[in-house]
Simulated scan of single mutants.
Amino acid sequence: MSLSPLFVEKAFGDLPGWDDDDHQAAFAAFRRSAFHVLTKPYRSGALGVDFHAFADAYAEARIVSPANRSPVLTRGEARAFFERHFVPALIPAENAGAGLVTGFYEPQVEASPVRTDRFSLPLLSRPADLVDIDDANRPPGLDPYLAFARQTPNGPVEYPDRGEIERGALDGKGLEIAWLADKVDAFFIHVQGAARLAMTDGRLARVTYAAKSGQRFTGPGKILSEIGEIPLAEVTMQSIRAWFKAHPDRADEILWQNRSYIFFRPADVEDAALG
Rank of each mutant, 00 (worst) to 15 (best):
Y159L: 07
I63R: 15
A80N: 15
N95W: 07
D171L: 08
D185M: 00
G174T: 06
P113I: 06
D171W: 05
A78K: 05
Q108V: 08
A111M: 02
N154V: 14
S120D: 07
L124N: 07
A61F: 10
V157T: 13
Y159V: 10
P127W: 05
I133P: 05
D132E: 15
V114P: 04
T152N: 04
I165S: 00
D171Q: 08
P92G: 11
L100A: 14
P88S: 04
P107D: 02
V87D: 07
F148M: 04
L142N: 08
G97Y: 04
T152V: 04
R138F: 11
V114K: 12
D182I: 08
V131E: 06
D171T: 15
T152I: 09
L121N: 04
P160I: 04
D161C: 12
D161N: 15
L90T: 01
P122E: 03
L130V: 00
I91D: 03
Y145A: 11
S70V: 01
P107K: 01
D182R: 08
D182M: 06
E164F: 00
G97L: 07
D161A: 10
P156Y: 00
D135M: 07
R115H: 05
L142M: 05
L73I: 11
A136N: 15
G168R: 02
G168M: 12
H85T: 01
A78S: 14
P140Y: 05
N137W: 00
D132W: 03
E60F: 14
I133N: 03
L170F: 11
E166Q: 06
T116Y: 00
P71H: 12
V114A: 13
E176F: 11
S125I: 05
N68M: 14
R115G: 05
R75H: 10
D182Q: 11
